[in-house]
Amino acid sequence: MSDVTDTLCVMTTPAHPNPGGGGPQGAPEPPPFDPSAALSVRGLWKRFGQKIAVSGVDLDVPAGSFYGLVGPNGAGKTTMLSMATGLLRPDFGGASVHGVDLWAHPDEAKATLGILPDGVRLFDRLTGRQLLTYAGMLRGMDKATVVERTADLLQAFDLTADADTFVVDYSAGMTKKIALGSAMIHAPRTLVLDEPFEAVDPVSAANIRDILKGYVAGGGTVIVSSHVMDLVQRMCDHVAVMAGGHVLAAGTVDEVRGEQSLEDRFVDLVGGRQHSEGLSWLRGS
């Protein structure tokens, strides 16, 4: 499978030497996609009304890496990930998944991607089991595989007891887990997870981390966005820091953080820490 796709990327890449066709006027021409990367993003721009959410992002996520994407609120993480996974059409720039140009061949690229988008609802009038089944059917999988993997996923996410409960009655954490399950059911080569640990209890989060680590050890690639630096530092081997629509730093975790903790390095990069005495009236009387 991987051989075929690798050959394919070598064949497709020269056909798209200039991904997405440049950027807004004055923006430098982005380099070509990295065909060996699980996810390669070039010159991504997106503007909503007056606000430029993502301005010229280049990023390579090496295959087999556990990649963390961190940034303050409103940094453009979700917008960037949406454009890198085919959920949102970029104004400029493009993305490739294992060397397949996503916006030129969306079906081929999406087949190898598992996506957990942030801030979208689920088809929550289905039961958990039905939702996973539905996700499998949309991916064109056969019945035996879907039934088997649905049971496995429910087990892995500790949802077996609630398999027949409607998703609308799930708690926030359970909803996150069932959404994660429906992103994994087709055994994608790359998982792109936007805030996967939000509202998930510590035990479930640890279970999910184990599942993801096993997945990476087996050759898969995981990209997670998160606010929790500590978690990213412990879990990920690569990290990118985003703020104001730009990537400020990217590389292995050790490269990015240097001698500091990731959190301190992040604060240095992003700025905004206040070193004043601040809120003196809050100190009690």
């Binding site: 039905q130 949309l138 019945k143």
Partner: peptide, 23 residues
Amino acid sequence: GGRAKGLGAFGLVRFSPTWGVAA
């Protein structure tokens, strides 16, 4: 909260995207 047994309409149809959407 409500519960439903098994796959419901999904168990009745052929496994393909079209029939998934239909179910």
